[in-house]
Amino acid sequence: MPKILIVDDDADMVEALKIVLESKGYRVDFAYDGDDGYRKAEKTRPDLVILDVMMKTKDEGFQVSYKMKNDPELKRIPILMLTAVGKETGFAFGKGDEDYLLADEFVEKPVKPSELVLKVERLIKKGAQKARPSRG
C-alpha cells in the first residue's frame, strides 16, 4: 500500500489526517517541522507528501515544496498542500497557480475527510503514472 508523509507542526491535525488515511489502508509517517520532513522524504521516498503551508514561519511549507521540486530525486513525489487560506480571503489557489506555487493540489483546513481521501487518491495515481516511464 502506498506510503504517505504528513508534515505539519500541529500534532492534532496530524492525528486527524492519520486516522482517516490509515482507515483507508495507507501507511502514514509524519514530521513536525520542515527540515525533519525533508529528511524523512529523502530517506523513505513516500508516494505522497501532505504539507502544511504555515508552520514555524509563514511560508515554511512553500520552502519545503520548493526544495523538493528542485531536488532531482524527490521532484516526482506529488505534494498536497494544507492551507488555512481559502477563497474567502480572496486567495483562490486555482488551477493556474499550481505551477507557480509548486504544489500539485491544495486542501483547505479544516479538512473534510471525504475531500482529503479523494485528493490523496488522485495524486497518488498521478504520481504513479509519472513514475512508470522511468521504470520501464
Binding site: D12, M13, A16, S23, P113
Partner: peptide, 20 residues
C-alpha cells in the same frame, strides 16, 4: 484562535464520518 479550531474540526470530522 482559528488555527487550533481547524484541528478540532478535522478531528471531530474524522470521528463523526466513521474513520476511527
Amino acid at each position: 484562535i482559528k488555527s487550533p479550531l481547524s484541528s478540532i474540526l478535522s478531528l471531530i470530522a474524522a470521528v463523526t464520518e466513521g474513520y476511527s
